[in-house]
Design a protein around this nucleic acid. Structure first.
Lengths: 65, 65
DNA sequence: ACCAAAAGCAATATATATATTACAAATGTT
DNA sequence: AACATTTGTAATATATATATTGCTTTTGGT
């Protein structure tokens, strides 16, 4: 796992589409980030973190591959 | 200021060029990130953080604009 | 089991991060 | 002040994040 977006998103019972809309990207982008197949931009990471009430470190730092 | 890369890089007395080489990008990219004119990729942010012995949050989280 | 919503996936298009090269400006050292 | 090193900046080229559309598969509720 390359990040914890999926887990924390599910804890808030948000759908990929809701999170995507809230941070201003498409559902596909969120899906690919959760799968670890995208290398998202810092601004998007920050937007996602704020939506999930987490910090960058909690979502993206030292995630055991 | 959009991030703290410049301050922490200078504390290690690394030049932009040295940091750039160590993280595998060009000097220009580092320069523009320090100026806040680029929206770097997460992977690059992580590489920079590791080079500076800092975490993502310390470099990029809640930086007072 | 059925059905609806959610998520996966694939193709093509677009925007932008990053590279490359070159030169100008600034900074530091003597 | 002169010089070398570092940093700023600008033009063009390339790679890749992200959008768009459409369809398939999975998941969850009844």
């Amino acid at each position: 796992m390359k990040n914890h977006v999926k887990i924390f998103r599910m804890k808030t019972s948000m759908t990929q589409e809701q999170l995507a809309r809230n941070v201003g990207v498409t559902r596909q982008t969120i899906g690919l980030i959760e799968k670890g197949m995208y290398n998202p931009s810092l601004n998007l990471c920050i937007a996602i973190a704020k939506q999930l009430n987490k910090t960058l470190d909690e979502l993206f730092w030292e995630v055991d591959e």
